[in-house]
Amino acid sequence: MMDFYDSNLVLIQATCTGLILALSIQVPLRMGVFSFAGAGSYGIGAYLAAILVIEQEVSAFVAIGAAMLATAVIGLLLGLLIFKLNGLYLAMATVAFDLIIGVITINGGETTGGSTGLYGVITDFTMGQMFALTVIVLALVALSEVGRTGRRVDAVRDDPELALSMGISLRRYRLTAFVVSGALGGLAGAMNVLVRSAIGPLDIGFGLIVLGLTMIIVGGSRSWKGAVIGAIIFTWLPDILTAIGEWQELVYGIIVALAAVFLPRGIYGVLVDLNKWLRRRRRERRDPPPAVAAEQAGDIDPKPGDVREFALNEETVP
């Protein structure tokens, strides 16, 4: 057990940061906000934590806290700027945001270390602390998926107009999505730089969007459990696939494509559907649906809102 842990330390760390990066894209997506700004926040969080540690010699927790605070505020500002955009336009705007962050890190001179990036980011950050933070984040995200908040998030995503008529402020939920996404991205980036002790422009490119998105598409986009499944698969799979050498990328691509086509709600979605189906079967065997018989007996109105109904019913007028 200890051997496994030691020899796979890097992968275990990458699973945690990958998971939180995936959540930074999944949380807004669950609210119907197609924002990939989490990837840009990851870059900001990583660089900010690195700079604070190198120049101010702050502790790991101060670096992480500052990174999350900064990315949450930037998320809010970005949100205020673009939350009214829809679907694809919003997605494009957030991708642009990510690319701008990339450009800034390359051209940041000594502060960001240019194309080499920053290294020597050494703190007392431990694996235990990393696990603890990851678990806390998972618990909070899980909490947002159940009860009142979970229902309201469902409404905001699936039927915004209905959500409004149920007293839900879309603006508030969408802005929250940006803030949470920013903080999660910042956390993932900061933790990554603290365990890896270095960060460069190549670590925060477009690839982060692809990685996070792949994790939640294959794992499942509606639940933190899907993000966990995806994070584990796509952190460990490339490592396993190195065994087959040059075919690696092809196999990877095929898996993603198959999942996108055949599992629209990801692996976790399949488990949910299976569970629903089993429950229904058990229920139907125990007792048939209460009013189905009555409904089948009655004559169902042929077409809702047909004008002819009025003419037919006219005889009933006294």
């Binding site: 229902r151 039927d159 008529s165």
Partner: peptide, 24 residues
């Protein structure tokens, strides 16, 4: 008044097309 405030006035409505949330 924004539409989301109407629930506070306790105005409720149903829609012509059924609008239930499929995952709930």
């Amino acid at each position: 008044v924004p539409p989301s405030r109407l629930a506070r006035l306790r105005v409720a409505r149903t829609f012509q097309m059924v609008r239930l949330l499929p995952d709930l």
